[in-house]
Design a protein around this nucleic acid. Sequence first.
DNA 1: TTGTAAGCGTTATCAA
DNA 2: TTGATAACGCTTACAA
Lengths: 345, 345
Amino acid sequence: MSQHSLGDDVSIANVAAVAGVSTATVSRVLSGRRRKDDDLSRRVRAAAKQLNYSVNYAASALRSAKTNSIGLIVPELNNSLYSSLTQAIEPAVNHAGKQLILGIGSTAAEQEQRIRLVLSHRVDALIIIPVETEFIVPFLETVAKQIPVVQLLSQTYSNKLDWVGISETTVMQIIADHLSTAGARSVAYIGSSTDDLDGMTLFTAFHMQMTVSGLSTYTEWIHFTQESVDSGYRIMQKILSDHSFYPESVICSDGLTAVGVYRACAAAGLSVPEEIKIAVLHDSALCENGTFESVSFTSVQLPWDRIAAEAVTLVAAEQERKSWLPSRRELEPELIIRKSTVVSS
Amino acid sequence: MSQHSLGDDVSIANVAAVAGVSTATVSRVLSGRRRKDDDLSRRVRAAAKQLNYSVNYAASALRSAKTNSIGLIVPELNNSLYSSLTQAIEPAVNHAGKQLILGIGSTAAEQEQRIRLVLSHRVDALIIIPVETEFIVPFLETVAKQIPVVQLLSQTYSNKLDWVGISETTVMQIIADHLSTAGARSVAYIGSSTDDLDGMTLFTAFHMQMTVSGLSTYTEWIHFTQESVDSGYRIMQKILSDHSFYPESVICSDGLTAVGVYRACAAAGLSVPEEIKIAVLHDSALCENGTFESVSFTSVQLPWDRIAAEAVTLVAAEQERKSWLPSRRELEPELIIRKSTVVSS
DNA sequence: TTGTAAGCGTTATCAA
DNA sequence: TTGATAACGCTTACAA
């Protein structure tokens, strides 16, 4: 811990005086616009350090129209997807020397209001996990005319917005391949609601994978639900009610549902993973340790840090390029293999 | 959704011209420094609206040294305590017409670095959930000389910092009273580690409540652990290994532990809540629906929105008062009674 | 490459 | 109460 000294009211003029140069030179050296690392540069930096100088962003922003801040709009934080991402973005933004201005909006209207707010504070760029994309995307496209905008995760295609995320198709492919390799020949699907685009994309990808990976499924084995242990339990109970015939594996949207599914299997006397394997689409703490009797769930982990790094790099780099085609950065999810799909040796 | 018009480059001078007054008057009217709501005021406001004017905060900040932004420093977001609080603070800050600048730091050193960063952006105030308080509090006290600082949740006493939170003693009292009223005469305690002050405060409060509420406990029934289903299960199994003698209730620090405890009870053939009652100190989604077989856990819910509102009110109000004694606002937690402590009728 | 000086858009001061 | 004007601290033409 340091000496607790805080920036006093020292301005660029003081630094200039101490270093024996003009304010313009100080500005150029400290902002990096003067690359040379000669005696003069060192003198300026030394003076700045000695005086504990830090730039007044208000003055800087007023003159240069750059505020050194990035707006981040997320739907909510009580959701591990969004909180993980926010937690990954904060250090990335700080690493880029910027400030993170946070806005939370769970509807398109709220998100638009928050965006207007951060815009009125002249943020340099906007990173957003959009909701109700059909409403918010047109607005985002108008925003993108002013500042760089990066969309995260959402599967909405826009030829005017940058995008960083993962492919739901890849997620499903990784899981289906793994279940097949692990020995399962049939699979049930308990997905999140199909209200949103991501849910639909996942379900479509599931069907596509059936053919490819040699797994089979049945209409009675396909269900959609809100995430909860209870509904996972009830749905799985229903699936298992036909005693002559049960799936050799289950794909669940989330950890809570998986816990319910597991309990239903246990209650029906089916052993996991020997007789039935369980895989989860979205990783969470529950998949790793949220169960008991030493069960844990194989799941797909999203590369939060890389998504965050890509997003920040994109908005930082984009400051320059005036005319451009939108970037799409698709990152690879990672399968975390746990006890629910493989027999421990 | 509105017409997607974004603030153009209209300045106070344009508004002044349209309204037929000076820029000074426009500034006074729009900033609320001129209270009167006469024809002149209306004319200015109409002109501002017509031109879609929004103040340039950089210019405003440069002149007035107020940036209309508040810094929030939290330890992390993958923890429901902190993410709930952040989610509650964001709307409160926005409601106050300010921007929220977020910093995440899980150590005192990281928090200090983030604080310096937001300070260099001249935030008007700081709200912080401190970690390693013995290290960070002295630094916070120096910060408090410059801008209002409100500490949240932490139990650290400082005669220089404002504080908003809840009393751990009250939490324990509410739970012990409830268990006693529900018919339990003895209780086990599975707390979080005693490394931090909060854990120690809770445990001390637990002991105090034993006498007051007429509950009894035993050394063998008291354990400390990291939150996980597995450790809850193992600890409870150990407690129940003496078959002649078991507690009529259990207080757990969190939902994961409670799930493990419940499983151990079920495995031992003890029915919840009839033979043994389970209560949780920190509410989470798991307490409400994270279990199966229709069990849910009685727990204590913190008044997030009120904590957030108090914190924001405090830093906003404090702008004025130059000499002051620190405020301490202690809010009441609420007991959420669920199936783990009362027999359903 | 460096210094000089003119702004950036607002608020504060001061005089009317 | 209002208006004219200076000042906030920085960046950037432009001149040297």
